[in-house]
Simulated assay, not measured.
Amino acid sequence: MAEHRIFAMPFARVYPLYLAKVERKGRAPEDVDRVITWLTGYDEAGLRRSIEEGVDLATFFARAPRINPDSTLITGVICGLRVEDIEDPLMQQIRYMDKLVDEVARGKKMASILRGGAAV
């Protein structure tokens, strides 16, 4: 089976879309960084470096310092699929990130978005 084309999409292309989405809904763009760092273990400098280097999503997640073990608590539907049922680990991580940003945009409480945890 061919690799999904989203894997080759640059993180730098997706990130501004996330920011625009939460800003359109009147939410703080800093919360996007907070949920991404919680999920991936990147710090702010690591996020900026990934954007500047133009890494694709596959590389972004491969280089992630530490995928949060509580990410398995993320459930729900994104792009018509239940995130907990996605079999491909990389696609699941990408959809986890999408789901977290959606929850920020909807105004869900940060403690709930971070599954009871704190940002890294």
Rank of each mutant, 00 (worst) to 15 (best):
A118M: 06
G107V: 11
T75E: 12
I78N: 10
T72Y: 03
P89T: 10
D31C: 01
A111C: 05
I94L: 10
R82N: 13
R115K: 15
I86V: 15
P65F: 06
T37I: 11
R63S: 10
E44R: 09
I36A: 07
L39T: 01
D102F: 04
G116E: 11
P69L: 13
Y42F: 04
R115V: 01
T72K: 12
G41L: 01
R66N: 11
W38F: 07
K99H: 13
K109W: 09
T75M: 04
R82D: 14
A111Q: 10
L73P: 00
I36K: 02
N68H: 13
A105N: 14
Y96N: 13
P89E: 13
I113R: 08
T72Q: 10
V32D: 12
E44L: 11
L57P: 03
V35S: 12
A105G: 14
G80F: 11
D70Y: 02
T72R: 13
G46W: 00
E30Q: 11
G46L: 07
P89Q: 14
R63M: 07
D102Y: 03
K109S: 12
L81F: 09
G80D: 10
R49T: 10
D70R: 15
Q93H: 03
Y96W: 14
G117A: 15
L47T: 00
T40R: 06
G117I: 03
P89A: 14
V83H: 00
I67K: 07
R66A: 15
D43H: 04
V55A: 05
E44P: 00
S112Q: 12
T40N: 10
C79R: 14
C79H: 15
V35Y: 01
V77D: 12
E87Q: 15
A64R: 13
G80A: 11
S71V: 06
V55K: 02
F60L: 07
D43V: 05
R34M: 07
L114C: 14
R49V: 06
D98A: 04
I78V: 13
R63C: 08
E103R: 08
A118H: 08
G116L: 04
I36N: 04
R63E: 14
V55N: 07
D98R: 05
R34H: 03
V32Y: 09
